[in-house]
Design a protein around this nucleic acid. Structure first.
Lengths: 111, 111
DNA sequence: CTCGCTGTCTCGCTTGGCGCTACAGGTTCA
DNA sequence: TGAACCTGTAGCGCCAAGCGAGACAGCGAG
């Protein structure tokens, strides 16, 4: 079995190489069951479209893989892409520090 | 101090009630330092606009709060909103099961 | 040859973030 | 009483991106 060891796993790759075969579904079959057009699924598999919250919910229903799994993979890519586009801008934003107690409080809001 | 105990914390609320006061910044000051127009920041604070990956990266630079913290809060809202719009559609998608070994492998890709 | 699947391209539609102008307040200070 | 500065919202146009649909080429099975 081919390993998926890239640092930034692509959602479409996981879907194509792992989940769809695991479900025994072709692209067209999966698109039909997801109630989306096959082009949309192709775009996701090829990485030319992102996993939207809508798609994540559909994939979760279809495969049992949590929606957040798909959104987390997508989020990593979106963030990397955004930071790449901000290389000139970010250094111009002053870096402040939050009180440690407040920073700790914020962690209780996460997940 | 007012507690933020809602199940689905709004990113704008955290920003307004915790982070901006913690940084000692007004809305206008923060907008200027983030290199965005003040209306955009107002829209985020009021929940009329989402935290985009671009904004998350800027907020991370400004406050030291990880970009993923903001994106996770936003993601929870986007997902809930998407599922609410799919209440009629989701039941029409057949629920399959993935082999347990494959499901376990997928968890190694997450975060 | 026919059928069905794959993969891509193009078009038009819609959504949503963003910057901008404008407006209505409120507060502080000279 | 002005002037300066902040908050908050509404409307506008611009632009990026997801989506469905139509079309096309290629390929393997029956």
């Amino acid at each position: 079995m081919r390993t998926l060891d890239a640092k930034l796993i692509h959602p479409g790759t996981v879907l194509r190489d792992r989940v769809l075969p695991g479900l025994g579904l072709s692209v067209i079959q999966a698109a039909r069951e997801l109630c989306i057009c096959r082009q949309t699924l192709h775009r996701i598999l090829a990485g030319r479209a992102a996993i939207t919250p809508d798609m994540a919910a559909r994939l979760s229903r279809l495969s049992g893989v949590p929606a957040r799994f798909w959104l987390d993979l997508q989020q990593a890519h979106d963030l990397a892409h955004a930071e790449a586009n901000l290389t000139d801008m970010l250094p111009r934003i002053p870096a402040h520090a939050l009180p440690p107690a407040l920073m700790k409080e914020l962690t209780t809001y996460a997940r």
